[in-house]
Write a protein that binds this DNA or RNA. Structure first.
Lengths: 200, 200
DNA sequence: GCATACTTGAAACAGTCGTTTCAAGTATGC
DNA sequence: GCATACTTGAAACGACTGTTTCAAGTATGC
């Protein structure tokens, strides 16, 4: 059972590595402290993953998988309004248990902005994946596809801006109020193309 | 004129260091490449700035100063609506020439989220400074201070979320559409407290 | 002109980095 | 039981890190 033992050990090491990176961040990651934290040796990590870079790729792949699984488990019906979708997603990912992953996401995002080659495809899918997921719920009679994508873009921006704020300040009271305001705004935007002209 | 020559050299080095960091990022910064790029030696940089950490502090201070100067130059009248303020600020900071500074901002933000002690006060003022600047324009009869802060929070989140998107994708067409949607939403939010109840 | 203080270069320091080498260990197939 | 392949530890490698040492240079004050 050499192959299965091999895989089991590898998976176990990867799980612990993910936990370590979620706790410590990626920018300062180095093999020796990581090995100590996972109960392995630098030699072992390289034996199982080939190189530090390959290990990081797998760590991020797993982190991203956790997020997409959660999105899938939300089972967002396509009949939900942008407001409802936003409310559900926000409730989930603003939970404290998601903060380490959100922190890691923003850390990698920032690093990728300065050195895209370091995380190939990260920035592209960071936007495109969410656009694809939200675009459908933003479609409405009289809305073009570009209109839907524009609204989805606003939703993504709102999520990320508010999550940045939450991770930095933990000011739940202020941010919860902001989310209420934002949700109201989303209704106004999705119910009509030009809400201003109608109220002015 | 030892003192003035000293200061002039220091300022010159700092200026070049800022340019270098705006181009290369902060995470991978090291003294020897920086020294080469600024036409100095590692010894020189430490002589003038004391340590790498102190140099980074000054670089970020200067980067932030550029941003606050620009905000001041916009001379935002307190009579402007949140929509107008947002439109003006967005038009400015979404210009391509600001992208290096925005990238650096998000890079430092992400690093600070994982290691707050590395950039003392950065996260706090990243939110508080903007809150203070935007809060006043969000005040309205019937709006409490908390209401104004909530709306300002939404504005900040929108800026940052959209800038994250712009820096990552440079998809101007989609993001410009999103900004239009977002500006419309801001009017709906600031003109009444419960725009939904009125239209539903 | 001489002493003093400021400025700078070259080199070395101790530490860490990812990775490799080498060797010993262990389990497996026959 | 023996050979073979997989697994692991200890140590070393060369390259890099921020920083310091030491010495030479240069300008300044008197």
């Amino acid at each position: 059972m050499s192959r299965s033992a091999d895989e089991a050990r590898r998976t176990e090491l990867l799980d612990r590595a993910v936990d370590y990176v979620l706790a410590q961040g990626l920018a300062q990651l180095s093999l020796r402290p990581l090995a100590k934290a996972t109960g392995a040796s630098p030699r072992l990590l390289l034996y199982y993953f080939g190189s530090k870079e390959a290990l990081v790729v797998e760590i991020l792949r797993r982190g991203r998988a956790r997020q997409t699984e959660t999105m899938a488990n939300l089972k967002l019906k396509s009949t939900l309004s942008p407001r409802e979708v936003t409310r559900i997603i926000w409730r989930h990912f603003s939970e404290p248990r998601w903060e380490p992953l959100m922190r890691l996401f923003f850390e990698v995002y920032g690093l990728a902005l300065q050195d895209r080659a370091r995380f190939p495809g990260f920035l592209e899918s960071a936007v495109d994946d969410w656009l694809a997921a939200l675009e459908t719920c933003c479609r409405r009679p009289g809305f073009s596809r570009d209109d839907a994508r524009a609204l989805a873009t606003v939703m993504i921006a709102g999520f990320r801006g508010l999550l940045l704020d939450l991770c930095a300040t933990h000011d739940r009271a202020r941010i919860d109020r902001a989310v209420d305001v934002w949700l109201s705004m989303l209704d106004a935007a999705s119910l009509s193309k030009e809400p201003i002209d109608e109220t002015a």
